[in-house]
């Protein structure tokens, strides 16, 4: 049967930063072909296909909260597979190989993580599950 694609509205102008992305204007309507958990979604816009940041897209029917898991304050253990240096105040800087707790998995690919007393956003693509549950 026909495949029904979710339509999303572009919230703000976006200029692509690598080859297979889409340039988008605020108000454009895109159809989502694939939602990658790292926050890049494969979209169709008119005759173009490419990746767009989920952080710039909102569902046509308003915020779709069913999709986004609730925060898990107990945390789930992940290991950093790549270092990242915070650019914004609410982000965390971590080195390669650090064990952290993921508290909230946001669809835009920026997860809320906790390391000791600190919490902040970290790119989900630089995290890998350890498979262990945190000891309470």
């Amino acid at each position: 049967g026909p495949i029904m694609l979710d339509s999303y509205r572009v919230v703000s102008d976006y200029s692509k930063s690598s080859k297979y992305e889409l340039n988008l204007k605020a108000g454009d309507l895109v159809d989502i072909v694939e939602k990658s958990p790292n926050g890049w979604w494969f979209c169709q816009f008119e005759t173009h296909r490419g990746w767009a940041p989920a952080s710039y897209l909102e569902p046509l029917d308003g915020p779709d909260e069913r999709e986004e898991p609730e925060p898990d304050y107990a945390g789930e253990l992940y290991k950093t597979i790549k270092a990242y240096k915070a650019v914004e105040e609410d982000e965390l800087s971590l080195e390669f190989g650090e064990i952290i707790e993921v508290i909230h998995k946001l669809l835009d690919g920026w997860w809320v993580v906790r390391k000791g007393e600190e919490t902040g956003y970290y790119p989900s693509m630089f995290l890998c599950r350890t498979g262990e549950k945190k000891e309470v």
Binding site: V11, S12, N38, W40, W51, A54, E58, P63, E88, D108
Partner: peptide, 22 residues
């Protein structure tokens, strides 16, 4: 290739989106 998402982290939400979430 186009089949694989970009290797760089996606941008943080723009101001418009942050206002809507708040």
């Amino acid at each position: 290739s186009i089949k694989h998402p970009p290797q760089n982290p996606p941008p943080r939400p723009p101001a418009e989106m942050r206002r809507k979430r708040a």
